[in-house]
Structures are given as C-alpha cells and as structure tokens.
Write a protein that binds this DNA or RNA. Sequence first.
DNA 1: ATTTTATTGATACTGAGTACCATGACATCG
DNA 2: CGATGTCATGGTACTCAGTATCAATAAAAT
Lengths: 133, 133
Amino acid sequence: MSVLEDRGYRSTAPRRAIICTLEGKQAGFTVEEIGNELPEVGRATIFRTIKLLMEAGVVCRLNLLDGAPKYSLSSIEHHHHTVCVRCGNVGEFRAATVERLLRALADDIPGDIVGHRVELYVTCNDCVSDESG
Amino acid sequence: MSVLEDRGYRSTAPRRAIICTLEGKQAGFTVEEIGNELPEVGRATIFRTIKLLMEAGVVCRLNLLDGAPKYSLSSIEHHHHTVCVRCGNVGEFRAATVERLLRALADDIPGDIVGHRVELYVTCNDCVSDESG
DNA sequence: ATTTTATTGATACTGAGTACCATGACATCG
DNA sequence: CGATGTCATGGTACTCAGTATCAATAAAAT
C-alpha cells in the first residue's frame, strides 16, 4: 500500500480501493473483475492504476495463449507463471534453475540478455482429477 | 505451401498469396504489414489465414512486452524467441537445455506440463554497437 | 456442367487499452 | 485553516487487434 508514497504518487481514494481489492486476489485476475468489484471507480482509472503498479513492479501482465489478458500480483520478487490450459487458473513459481539456465544460454545468444519470461502451460491437478475421475 | 492440402483446406488465391508473402519474411512480422503488401486481400481473410496457419503449427504469435503483437514463421520445429528491447527485432533460437530444464522442473510444478514458452529480452548486437559507438 | 460446400470480403461489431478534457481532489505553502 | 498549483478522475470518444455476420463467389466433387 506504500507503493504510492514510495514513488511519489498521490494517495487517492480510487487508487487505495484498487490496491486493496488487488491484495485480496489470486494470481490471474482480470481488469474487468476489478471493475465489477469497484463500480464507483472509472474504467480509465483502473487501467491507469494497473499500469502504474506494473511500472512499480507490483503487478505483472501475463499473455495467455488465446487472448483474455490477465494480471497477477508480484508478491514473489521475480517469478514465472503456470497457466492451466483447461480452467485458465494461473499459478506462480520460482526456480533458480531457470535463472542458471539463462546465464548458461547467454553465450549462445547474440546480443545482451536483459530480461526473460517463462510461461508453462499445464493441466492443473484439479483438471487432471476431473479427467480421470 | 502444402499446408493447405495437408489439412484439407481449399487452395485459394488469397491463401496462396498470403503464404507466399509470409515465406519471404523475417521473424516478427505484423498482420498490418501483410495487409499492406496484399491490398487486394481482405483484412478478415488475412486474420483467418494466419489463424489457420497457427493451428497448423506453421506460424506462431509472440506477445511482446508492450502490445504490438507480432508473428513468426515456425521454420524451426520447436523454438523460442529473442526480442530486442530497443529495435524490436525478433530472433529465434533453439536450445536443448531449455527442454531439459523443463523436464527437470516438472517435479516441482503441480499438474502436468503440456507446453511452454520462453522469451528472452535482449539488446541485439546492432543496438549494442549503436550504444557504444 | 452443375451442385455442394468452403471461402471471401465488406461491414459492423467486441474488448482491451488510451487520448482528451473539463471537473474535482490532493498536498503544499503561507 | 484557507488559497493555489498540480495531479488525478471519469466520462466519452477513440484506436487497434481480432471476430461475427452474411450475401456473393470460387473450389471441389459429382
């Protein structure tokens, strides 16, 4: 909640409401969802605030295979996502192995690696059970 | 060019034109680009054909950090992308290490991994020279 | 050649996100 | 505490990617 002050942004009612709503959310929420829960806040403001939070590194967008953009809180500092291809549920994971791998890869890639994104498409445990049950 | 027959789609003039144009393209083209080169083909048809080719595994979409969706020919069977954060140029690479890593990761991830996507954000050699030159 | 069926393209639409701009809220300085 | 400059709001109109619709048309099958 201190993101605003930390970055010199004004602490306004709409922004506080959005951040508060976000804090109670699972990874993989949509902007529409936030809008529904905060009808008193304008659509533009929600987008603006999400963008602001992305720049602050608090929220990240994930691009799914088939459109429908979702967002996730970056509670874990640097992380990657799993997306269930059946139910669309989004999870987070962190693996030092990934980072090590990328360092190893650097030699084979022309240019300087400045960032990366790893997304895993999975069938989550719930959906696996549904299938076999 | 045999994608169409292979999958039971009709071989039509617009589709052939699109595929032909695609074949002369670097990774990272946009739909708009194709449209400009083929003004006689309707916008909807270009999107439809690109979609069809994605389903056939011939084309893949890449989601850049900041919007502007691009596409790339899957000349290499399974591969990943590098995107230059300066000039936007897109490259492809393939690394067995990535695949091995993911197999190793499978134990730590709940559910079944059915696919993955790895994107590297780089400063490409051209842009590195510009910077230091 | 004729009929069936897939495809086209024009247009209208959706959904995510942004630009614009007058109104209103925040912080600051007195 | 009140005036003031600046930043934020939200409504609306817009852009941009992609899709739905549908009458007209081209490909394939007969």
